[in-house]
Amino acid sequence: MNIKYLEVNEVRSSNRNKKMTTPVSENEIITLENVSKAYSTGAPALNGVTLHINRGEFVFIVGDSGSGKSTLIKLLLRELTPTEGNIRVMGYDLNKLRHRKIPKFRRNLGIVFQDFRLLKDRNVYENVAFAQRIIETPTKEMKKNVPSILATVGLAGKYKAKPKQLSGGEQQRVALARALVNKPSILLADEPTGNLDPKNSWEIMKLLEEINEAGTTVLVVTHNREIVNAMQKRVVTMKKGVIVSDEEKGGYIDDED
């Protein structure tokens, strides 16, 4: 595998909108300062979360259901806005980001879901090309980029297949290819191995690691204890809307409740 787009990422992530209350380091790509998010019903989903992630890091976000992981991802995608606190991603101040600027912001993010979310009526090539169409990539370039990224995820021979003709692992690879084809600065993976068997889970995690080694910042939300413990990456553990631990080369902390 050969993923080389570190330079592109660096150029893209030049800070665009530098207004924020607390100064942040040039190397920081994600900054959350005292972020809380309360829904109209129930306890706050996030409560005073502060998190700093540097360019090129690989971070696991772990925690049980209801710990606030999904809310965190939604905030990073600017699907939600915080009730309190500030969020800055790739230089964008998400609290002040206007609705019409959201698409441009999201084009620098790659996102992978547990349920793959592929377009069922389109083949592998079209699913990946879809992401390029959205950013209006010239057709000539698209015809180079899509096969190249499909080769990267090991699906070069299956570009004509429809999602239902693929295994879960292969579908997740297509989702990964789609997330990566626009060369994002950050890859958010929400339970990427949740629907996969152990073998496919490991293959996907290896791919994520290689993507990270090529320069992309990778955030993986997961329940998979084995993988977290084996990969020895930074682990942020959440519980009831707060960060309870943040360790370099950490492991999965068992819930003592």
Binding site: R100, P103, K104, R106, R107, I111, I134, I135, R178, N182
Partner: peptide
């Protein structure tokens, strides 16, 4: 709906 959601996550504009 699902396709529209995917489009939104990838960064499609309202117009698109």
């Amino acid at each position: 709906k699902e396709e529209i959601n995917i489009m939104k996550y990838i960064g499609a504009t309202d117009f698109f």
